[in-house]
Amino acid sequence: MSTADDDAIVARELTKTFVVARKHTGRFAGLRSLLDPVSDKVTVVDRLTMRVGRGELVALLGPNGAGKSTSIKMLTGILTPTSGEVYVDGRVPHKDRTSNARSIGAVFGQKTQLWWDLPARQSFALLRDIFDVPQALYDRQIADFDSILQLSEFWHTPVRNLSLGQRVRCEMAAAMLHDPRIVFLDEPTIGMDVVVKEQTREFLRAQVQERGRTIVLTTHDMTEVARLCERVLLINRGRLMFDGTLTQLKAEHGGTSHVNVTFAEPVNAVSVPGTRLVSHDGMRAVLAPEGATTPEDVVRALISHYPVVNVGVEETNLEDLMRDVYLAQLDAASAASHLA
């Protein structure tokens, strides 16, 4: 395990538990909740151990409620962990929020840090004052960001009148105005059109490749992950389930391609050795090759044993892969709870 100073981010056995009030039901529920409060402990992040090197762009992935946002909030110092250790740029973020603020920048999805009724340019100037950014650095940053994000087209417009895409571009700039080493982006491109998304990706790539920033990105947009991140961290139910490259993820969870077949007449049962039956509705079936079986092997087997009228091979996209991974984890967790 690396030391706290080597990497941009180090988390060891990081855990966050919330105490949630349980509501009474039935008669006088409100009064009973007041007189006899009952609470449950909910563990949102469970012994998360991870590290992110300097200059890396990693994706923190997981289904809704997996603990991604809570993890980000602990890494940024907003939330205090229940237990475990966390170091960001060598500091414990929740204990040293003021110094930590200079090292990090963040965008939290739809939550804006811009002043709603003021033009974005005025918000930038206010953030310059808050972070005490020297004027020369501020001017350079603004010029840099404008060259990619084309902010000057709309930065004199009050933020409340900006489109979502325009606002998010301003949020990105606002988060990096003070030249932070590490940037946390919690679903920054949600709801944006493809053109703006690509512009944002170009901006992020430039920040990593040219400015050496470390970026941690949470997103549900798999195209974004595929185009930006070499490394993914997959968490579910607050636990780290996978840490590696997308290629490794595909290899570990298999099913990188599917064979879609249409029959001339309804077929009762479809069985091809070395494959997993993904779906079957009589006239159509989808099979996933497993192990050493190739899609070509499956096509040959189908044609020789069934009345096939149409067959095609489809590469599994990342969305499907993630769905399969999430569902597999749910099944595993369900099985474990049954055994327990």
Partner: peptide, 26 residues
């Protein structure tokens, strides 16, 4: 790759946050 230059001023306490006084008027 160019490394990020963290200005010396980043080590100091901020002294311009008082300019937030103008937000209300803006």
């Amino acid at each position: 790759m160019t490394s990020i230059v963290i200005p010396d001023v980043a080590k100091r306490r901020p002294h311009r946050s008082w300019r937030l006084l103008r937000v209300g008027l803006l």
